[in-house]
Amino acid sequence: MSDRDASTPRVFLARHGETEWTINGRYTGITELELTSRGEKQVLGTGRRLVGPGKLIDPVQLERVFVSPRKRARKTFELLFGADSELAALEKVEFTEDIAEWGYGAYEGLLGEEIIARRKEQGLDIERPWDIWNDGCEGGESSEQATERLDGLINRIRDIQRPYMHGEKPVDIVLVAHGHILRAFTKRWLGIPMGSPLGMMLPPGGIGVLSYEEHDISAPAFLVGIALPLEEG
């Protein structure tokens, strides 16, 4: 995006901080876990640098914040914006299952190798290895179901941002959620089928940025780099 595109609406992806299951790699969907002390520091560090008046994520520029209802995402929202954030008072915050983590079903709490072993015992994956993007989860969410709910949220966001593509009104959006579903959201934002490969990484407490090319609602894009606002003083 060129400098003249600075007013184009953006969508910020905020991943929750570290939990105990983040550390050991267990699939964490509906299980309610607290952030570790390190996880809280990750989010606070991100918030100090990137969230606030005149910073990358300026509350004044936000139209809506969509937050996963899981405890770890709620805590991350509070740490990023402050427990008494004016955003809540202005009814700009929505806690919604639309951006909850992928439904892992029978794989909840398992390690990747445990899932592979379980499926092998069931006689599955004979022709190719299990791939959640294509195969979904036993007793949980399929790729098609995840696509449907994320596409619904994306349509809502586009309806919000469509009238203001040239900065007529600040309508930035923040999603506070989970690593897997935020990567899935990115695929669908770009119009990429869930099963198509797209290597992405978003660390705990990290922020990603999506937007549009040339102020065009039909040209969704992701920002591979960002320039931070100048600090005053």
Rank of each mutant, 00 (worst) to 15 (best):
S218R: 15
V224D: 15
G199P: 07
E97N: 12
D5K: 03
M200S: 11
R48G: 06
A117C: 03
R119C: 04
A221F: 00
P204A: 02
A221D: 12
E148S: 12
L90H: 05
E127H: 14
R162P: 02
A184R: 03
R49N: 13
G17D: 01
R48Q: 14
I23M: 08
T186N: 08
A221W: 06
A73L: 00
G25D: 11
R48T: 12
D84K: 11
V11I: 13
V176A: 11
K41V: 07
L44D: 04
E20N: 04
P197T: 10
M165A: 13
G123N: 10
G199N: 05
G140S: 11
E113Y: 10
E168S: 08
P59N: 12
I192F: 00
D98I: 02
S143P: 06
G152S: 13
K41A: 10
I181C: 11
V60I: 11
D216G: 12
Y164N: 14
P163F: 08
I30A: 15
I154K: 13
E214V: 07
V67K: 11
W102F: 14
H166K: 15
I173Y: 00
E40V: 03
I192S: 12
G112K: 15
L90K: 06
F222C: 13
E148F: 07
I160K: 11
L44F: 00
G205M: 02
E148T: 13
L62M: 13
R26H: 09
V65S: 14
A219L: 14
T76N: 08
A221G: 07
E214Q: 14
L79Q: 07
R15P: 03
G206Q: 10
G47N: 02
L33D: 03
K41P: 02
F185L: 08
A177R: 03
S85V: 09
G105D: 06
A117I: 02
H178Q: 10
A73R: 00
E86K: 01
A88Y: 08
